[in-house]
Design a protein around this nucleic acid. Sequence first.
DNA 1: ACGTATTCACTAACATATGAGTAAGTTTTT
DNA 2: AAAAACTTACTCATATGTTAGTGAATACGT
Lengths: 151, 151
Amino acid sequence: MKPRSLDHRNLPLLMLKAREHVIARFRPLLAEHDLTEQQWRIIRVLLEAGPLEPREIGELCGLSSPSLAGVLLRMDEFGLVVRERFPNDQRRVRVSLSARCRALTKRIIPQIESTYAALEARLGKQFCITLYMTLDELIKKLKDDDIERDS
Amino acid sequence: MKPRSLDHRNLPLLMLKAREHVIARFRPLLAEHDLTEQQWRIIRVLLEAGPLEPREIGELCGLSSPSLAGVLLRMDEFGLVVRERFPNDQRRVRVSLSARCRALTKRIIPQIESTYAALEARLGKQFCITLYMTLDELIKKLKDDDIERDS
DNA sequence: ACGTATTCACTAACATATGAGTAAGTTTTT
DNA sequence: AAAAACTTACTCATATGTTAGTGAATACGT
């Protein structure tokens, strides 16, 4: 019984649009500080986890190695991060936030948090809980599956 | 009470990762037919809604005008779509699927549908219902808000 | 020790995303 | 009708995404 018509809605598209509505509330804020969405993702994980290697950043931020190469290069040029080789392993690189960037985050964080507050107010507390839970569970269910599909 | 630390998880990032896990199941399928994710989005809406104008496609597929210009150009070159000016309004363009593309979709749709079936089997029927409903509601709540914020 | 396999960051080539702007075509206003 | 306003698709510059592949460095097997 091969289906001739599309019986399912386009889920990736639905998720894309949903995400667009959310990120749209942060975009002007980041632009104000000349940060791209990707740069802010990286800054956030470096704030929370401390200095990391590109490989780890990519994993945490959902950025591929080629994308990361360019983004980190620009962040380095703009003085947002510092990149240095490991003395004991010349392949690996340590990426850390610059002092200037840490100062910058002090001004941005309150704005980000107040944007989240406004967002939560609009969505409702209970809905937010459901939203995060649903996304977490989706990832969990499909991540387990990815492992099986690899082997 | 300005917050100094990030008390909220990165929601756009969470949504990005969730979407990545979903689209990952379709990517190899589309690549097999030399289609990009964006091209398939466009083909889908043209299948469901019939010929459309770029502006409408952009709205329905979440594609900006500049992105669309390139994507449609390539789809035209590859013989996937046909673009023609309106006789009564030379600004507007009518985009429709080529016969070759319609034939192509006949082979792809069953694979897409079976991928959705596998996905639903993995996620569970009830979870899928919750997922779609949550995303729909998120968009609805934030779309209403966008209108207010414009004015 | 020495060749091999792995790891890691990176490059190359191409497609898309974003923000700003433009030119041609159409509608509205005066 | 002529000017102003608007609409539509498009270009330009730059940043990122995707897939494939590379070179340097390290770990491993024999």
